[in-house]
């Protein structure tokens, strides 16, 4: 029971971990809160599912999902850099237009993949001796590790460093010869490609695509990034990419526990989004609360015993 629960958290944490790596690029590196994610996650699912459902090659479907995600990122990037819309508005517009696009692609709100051959089943053919229960987490672990190292490498290249600098000090990197419109678009493109890939895998893993499955992806991504970064505090890209994936695992574990045992506390499945938002608020406010407590205790307010002690020392 508990092992299957942990295994589920591991699988989902890794699949969503791909999405979290994408959110990390925009939110933490580019300093761009990108809401496109809520649309590009189901976009990846829609593209992959549609192709698999109509008998296409799942690998091809997954690849096209990545392309579709990058295009979504490019649209947000163009709205922001060329039309000078704010980052939030650019994301909202793309997210909303993607809802219609996703419906168009799928042709209906929900496509099941029952009895269809997904990428996971194709991989299974190559490893007939390993049970699906272990193959799935291993495959995604392998994939996430490859993606992590690829991203690390990318962000140590000339262009990768320019993207980091765009989020850190835009005016400076422009005066150092980087086209910041371009670096932002590349960052958004990469980010949404990862998010769409994550969506494509999630639909194949769970066996369906739904037009509403993207709702709350941003918040889940942010929660994972924030949790991960507060667990591992080393501010280098190498550790940050590990941290956000761990954050994703922790987040999924909390969600699965809340889903499975939450009813004892009176929670319903519909409360999950509320819980994830509370997680974000708590994780974000910890440093501020900690600062307040340090501030208050530094004056010993309301602590007679401490005040007396201090007088004695003087």
């Amino acid at each position: 029971m508990t092992i299957s629960l942990l295994l589920h958290a591991l699988e989902q944490g890794l699949i969503f971990g791909i999405m979290v790596l994408g959110v990390f690029i925009t939110y933490k590196i580019l300093d761009f809160p990108d809401l496109t994610v809520d649309g590009s996650f189901p976009l990846g699912a829609a593209v992959a599912t549609k192709i698999i459902f109509s008998g296409g090659n799942p690998l091809w479907g997954t690849f096209l999902a990545i392309i579709a995600g990058s295009l979504a990122g490019i649209i947000t990037g163009l709205l922001h850099t060329k039309l000078k819309l704010t980052n939030l508005l650019s994301g909202i517009l793309t997210m909303t237009l993607l809802y219609s696009v996703n419906l168009r692609i799928m042709g209906r709100p929900n496509i099941p993949l029952l009895g269809k051959e997904t990428l996971l089943e194709e991989i299974k053919i190559h490893f007939p001796n390993i049970s699906m229960n272990y193959l799935i987490p291993f495959f995604f672990l392998f994939l996430v590790i490859i993606l992590k190292f690829t991203l690390d490498l990318f962000f140590s290249t000339e262009i990768g460093l320019a993207i980091i600098a765009t989020g850190d000090n835009e005016q400076m990197i422009r005066s150092l010869g980087a086209n910041t419109d371009m670096t932002k678009i590349i960052g958004l493109c990469l980010s949404n490609a990862l998010v769409a890939l994550s969506g494509a895998f999630f639909s194949q893993y769970s066996g369906f695509a739904d037009v509403n499955m993207g709702l709350g992806t941003v918040v889940a991504g942010l929660a994972s990034v924030i949790i991960g970064i507060s667990i591992i505090r080393i501010p280098t890209i190498f550790w940050r990419t590990i941290a956000v994936v761990i954050g994703s695992l922790v987040y999924r574990l909390i969600m699965i526990i809340a889903l499975r045992y939450g009813y004892r506390l009176g929670f319903k499945p519909g409360d999950l989004k509320l819980i994830s938002v509370l997680l974000v608020i708590i994780a974000l406010s910890i440093p501020i609360i900690k600062h307040r407590i340090d501030f208050i205790t530094s004056f010993n307010l309301g602590r007679k015993d401490l005040q007396n002690n201090q007088k004695k020392e003087v």
């Binding site: 140590s156 000339e158 320019a162 980091i164 600098a165 150092l176 010869g177």
Partner: peptide
């Protein structure tokens, strides 16, 4: 990283920074 960014001012590519 700051110094590397200032040295290479055009055609930034996929070479290591």
């Amino acid at each position: 990283e700051n110094l590397a960014l200032s040295l290479k001012r055009e055609r930034r590519g996929l070479r290591l920074g």
